[in-house]
Computed example of a mutant assay.
Amino acid sequence: MAKVLYSVTLSIDGFISGPNGDMQWMRPYLGPNPEVDELVPRIGALLVGRRTHDGDDPHKGDPNEGQAFGGGYDGPEYVVTHHPPADPRPGVTYVDDFTKALAAAKQAAGDKYVNVMGASIAKQCIEAGELDEVLVLYAPVMLGDGTRLFAHPGGRTVRLQRRSVTPTSLATSLWFDVIKN
């Protein structure tokens, strides 16, 4: 059975993108990461929000621009959107319902991970009780503004249990299990 994982690079002050969805801040922190290299072959499907799918690519200008994990991942991708594009990208399935998209991604993933990309989709997974794990790659930078890792007006506590901490030269990885009550 597939597990749902939210993996994301994060600034020390809690942002996954900069102002106006800027992802170029991440470029100096892209590079070899043994934990990510080990993870990518264990991903069976992506579950992505439309803003993330259409947004700024930290690999802009690179040969693998537009490809998940800088070209490291090649598999099914499910984008949650109420407005599918007129010219869909090959290999991407656009689904207008979160629940249906998650079910399709889990089925496609088999016994591998469904990797969540995008704060809104991660939040929906949390609210549905479907998020199993979180992998945060802390980059040594502060952005001051942008999209938060998790925002819930009025607050919401999501308890996590640390699984591992892995420092690298570019970022520090923290892997957690989501504690479900």
Rank of each mutant, 00 (worst) to 15 (best):
M1S: 13
M1R: 10
A2Q: 09
K3L: 14
K3D: 10
V4S: 00
L5C: 10
S11E: 06
F15G: 00
I16P: 01
S17G: 13
G18I: 09
G18L: 11
P19N: 11
P19Q: 14
N20Q: 15
N20C: 07
G21D: 02
M26Q: 13
M26S: 10
R27W: 07
R27L: 07
Y29V: 10
L30C: 09
L30W: 08
P32H: 15
N33P: 04
P34N: 08
P34I: 00
E35F: 00
D37H: 11
D37A: 14
E38F: 01
E38T: 02
L39Y: 06
V40G: 02
V40W: 01
V40I: 15
P41H: 05
P41K: 04
P41V: 04
G44V: 02
A45S: 10
L47N: 05
T52Y: 04
T52K: 01
D54A: 04
D54P: 02
D56E: 11
D56G: 09
P58I: 09
H59C: 08
H59P: 00
H59M: 14
K60W: 09
G61F: 06
G61Q: 05
D62P: 01
P63R: 08
P63N: 10
Q67N: 07
Q67S: 09
A68N: 00
Y73K: 02
G75R: 07
G75H: 04
P76G: 12
P76W: 06
E77M: 14
Y78C: 03
Y78R: 01
Y78A: 03
V79P: 00
V80D: 00
P84K: 14
P84T: 12
D87V: 05
D87L: 00
D87A: 09
P88E: 13
R89D: 11
P90Q: 12
V92N: 07
T93D: 13
D97F: 05
T99A: 15
T99E: 14
A103W: 01
A104E: 12
A105N: 00
K106G: 05
Q107P: 03
D111E: 15
K112C: 07
N115C: 04
G118T: 05
A119H: 03
A122E: 07
K123R: 15
Q124A: 15
I126K: 08
I126E: 04
E127G: 01
G129R: 11
E130L: 08
L131G: 06
L131M: 11
E133M: 07
E133C: 02
L135I: 02
V136Y: 04
L137P: 01
L137D: 02
A139M: 05
A139E: 06
P140L: 10
V141E: 08
M142W: 06
L143C: 01
L143W: 04
G144F: 07
D145S: 14
L149K: 08
A151G: 12
H152W: 02
G154R: 08
G154A: 10
G155H: 09
R156Y: 03
T157E: 13
V158H: 04
V158G: 07
R159T: 11
R162Y: 01
R162M: 14
R163C: 03
R163F: 01
V165S: 13
T166H: 12
T168E: 10
S169A: 14
S169M: 11
L170A: 13
A171T: 14
S173E: 08
L174R: 09
D177M: 04
D177C: 03
D177L: 03
V178I: 12
K180G: 08
